[in-house]
Every structure is written in structure tokens, then in C-alpha cells.
């Protein structure tokens, strides 16, 4: 086990190096750079951007240096904890990320909890009452969750609430609470706003878990020990809980490491539609504006989360399921 973890850690470092290069390259792929974006933006409202302004900006930001030099400068900084500065916000990247991270984690964790709370009971029910009407309804709803484009669901939910109940669910707080200091009222206000993004983001994940868990539980229910337990007259729910459900939960628990980063990246589009103060919209804006240090650091961070999550999941899987070969 120990050597397995060490080997995985070594691999992880290689992967992270590759990711850092890719993160930086994909920002450079589109033509132009932040300067061109900025000039386009200035001119788009009519300012005549003359050579003098362009030249002075170019010099100011050293954007004419070769890409690999810009990369080394950035990655050198990252290793010492300095992620560079965002052009677009004129703020240290670390500050921007730190400012949005707590809310991102709150939303992601809430979504995760929501997903499990909904998915696990439904999937157990579905497995036990296979092919019942309830099972069909659960399956269909689950599949619909997988099928609806999330941005659309967010958009429709947002406006339906305003139109029919006069509630604005955009953002994480109501306008009068946005300014307030933290209090119970503010937390309650946040919870009121939290559930729409939670449903929208959690929808696909919920459906996925229902499918997996229903299948595993069904497998286990077909096994001999269950029949034996039943024949002994042990109450059905005890039979169920004692083993099949636990076995079926193993893969779910052990994939938490994957789920969390998946949710963090998955929130991007929904967060844009619902105007949530989390990392997604900033990342998108940074990408569109080619704000390279901000975008690069974001991608690096999210990818690292995923890599670490995968590692944790794999280790958990290895612990829970000794049948997995460690190679």
C-alpha cells in the first residue's frame, strides 16, 4: 500500500507539470492577448486608441516577451505561492481566488449533500421495488435530470420564481442582505437562495448516483446471502441495511474525491446564469478576456483539485475494495 501511494504521488507530480503547461497554453491558443482585448474594449465604446497608448501599455506589461519566458516567470511564482496579478481586476490572483473560494465550497458541499440525500433513498427504493411505478418514475426523473441543459433549467427556474412568486433568486443574497454583516438572518437569506443552484447543479449528479447505486444494490439483492437472510425471517429493512446497501455505498463514498472538483467545474455555466458570487463566472470572464495569469491559475487550481481528488478516491477504493489490483 505504501509503495502504491508513493508511486501514485510521483505520477501526480508529472501530471501536474503537464497540466501547468496545458493551462498556460490554452490561454495562448486564441489569437491576441489581453492587450488586444483591452484595446478592442476601449475602442468598442468609441475611444480612439492611438499608438502612444498601445505602446505604453505593451511596455508596461511586458506582453511582447516570448511565451516560454512568461510561463517560467509564472510557474516560478506559483511555486513560491505568488500566482501573479490579474490584468482585468488589477488585483493579486491569490486574493481574487481566496475571495470567491469560501462561497464556492459552500455551494459545492451543499450540492454534494443534497445529491446524496436525494439519490441514496431513491436508489434503494428503486432497487427494492424494481419495475414498480415508483421505480419508473424515479428512473425517468433521474434521466431527465441528466438530459436537461443546466443553463436552461437555471434560466427558467429563475424567471418562473420572479414571475409567479415575485421572488428574485438571482445571486446568493437578496439586495438588502448583500451589504449586511453575517447574522442568522443573513444565513437564512442565503439558504433561501441556495436551493435553486443546488437543484440545478446537483441534478445531473443525482441522476448518475441513482443509476449506479440502483444497479449495485440490485446485484447484491440477487446474491445468496440475502436470500439466506430472508429465509431466516430477518426483517426486510435489516437485511437490506446490513449488507447490500453498505456494499452499494462503497463506490459512492470512495468517489467523493472526484465529485467535489467535478461540481466546482460544473457550476461555471449555472453560476453565470444565476449570477452567483463564486469562482465560475470569474474564470469564464478571465478566459474571455485572456487575462492569462488569473485564468491559468484557476485552471491549475481546479485541475490540481481533481488530481488530488482522484488520488484520494483511488486510495479509498483500494481500502474499501481489496479486490482492486494496485498497479
Amino acid at each position: 500500500m505504501g509503495s502504491y501511494i508513493i508511486r501514485r504521488l510521483a505520477y501526480m507530480l508529472i501530471t501536474l507539470l503537464g497540466i501547468s503547461i496545458i493551462s498556460f497554453t490554452i490561454i495562448q491558443l486564441p489569437p491576441g492577448d489581453y492587450l488586444t482585448t483591452y484595446i478592442a474594449q476601449l475602442s468598442s465604446s468609441g475611444t480612439v486608441v492611438d499608438d502612444s497608448l498601445v505602446a505604453s501599455l505593451e511596455r508596461q506589461y511586458g506582453l511582447d516577451r516570448p511565451i516560454y519566458i512568461q510561463y517560467f516567470k509564472w510557474i516560478g511564482g506559483v511555486l513560491t505561492g505568488n500566482f501573479g496579478r490579474s490584468f482585468d481586476w488589477n488585483e493579486a490572483v491569490a486574493v481574487l481566488i481566496a475571495e470567491r473560494l469560501p462561497m464556492t465550497i459552500v455551494i459545492s458541499l451543499a450540492t454534494l449533500v443534497f445529491t446524496y440525500l436525494v439519490a441514496i433513498p431513491i436508489s434503494i427504493y428503486s432497487a427494492v421495488k424494481q419495475y414498480s411505478i415508483g421505480d419508473y418514475i424515479a428512473t425517468v426523473i433521474g434521466f431527465i435530470g441528466l438530459s436537461v441543459p443546466d443553463f436552461l433549467l437555471a434560466l427558467v427556474l429563475m424567471f418562473s420564481f420572479y414571475r409567479f412568486f415575485g421572488i428574485s433568486v438571482s445571486g446568493l443574497f437578496s439586495p438588502e442582505m448583500r451589504e449586511a454583516a453575517w447574522s442568522w438572518a443573513k444565513i437564512k437569506d442565503m439558504l433561501d437562495h441556495l436551493w435553486v443552484p443546488m437543484i440545478v447543479i446537483g441534478m445531473a449528479g443525482t441522476a448518475g448516483i441513482i443509476r449506479t447505486m440502483r444497479a449495485t444494490t440490485l446485484d447484491e439483492l440477487g446474491k445468496d446471502y440475502v436470500k439466506m437472510a430472508r429465509s431466516k425471517g430477518i426483517p426486510e429493512w435489516k437485511v437490506l441495511m446490513r449488507h447490500p446497501v453498505r456494499v452499494a455505498l462503497n463506490p459512492i463514498i470512495s468517489t467523493i474525491g472526484w465529485e467535489l472538483p467535478r461540481i466546482v467545474s460544473g457550476t461555471t455555466i449555472v453560476a453565470v446564469v444565476l449570477n452567483l458570487p463564486i469562482t465560475g463566472p470569474i474564470l469564464l470572464q478571465a478566459l474571455q478576456a485572456q487575462d492569462m495569469f488569473l485564468a491559468g491559475s484557476f485552471i491549475l487550481m481546479l485541475s490540481t483539485l481533481t488530481v488530488i481528488g482522484t488520488l484520494i478516491s483511488d486510495i479509498l477504493l483500494a481500502i474499501f475494495d481489496p479486490r482492486i489490483r494496485l498497479d
Partner: peptide
């Protein structure tokens, strides 16, 4: 494969 699976899709889409 690990790298591709780890990098969030949206930046990859946008870059490509």
C-alpha cells in the same frame, strides 16, 4: 489521459 480528464472542460473548449 489523466491530464485531459483533470483539466476542466470549459477552458479546453474555449481554447480549442
Amino acid at each position: 489521459i489523466e491530464i485531459i480528464r483533470s483539466v476542466p472542460h470549459i477552458p479546453l473548449w474555449m481554447g480549442l
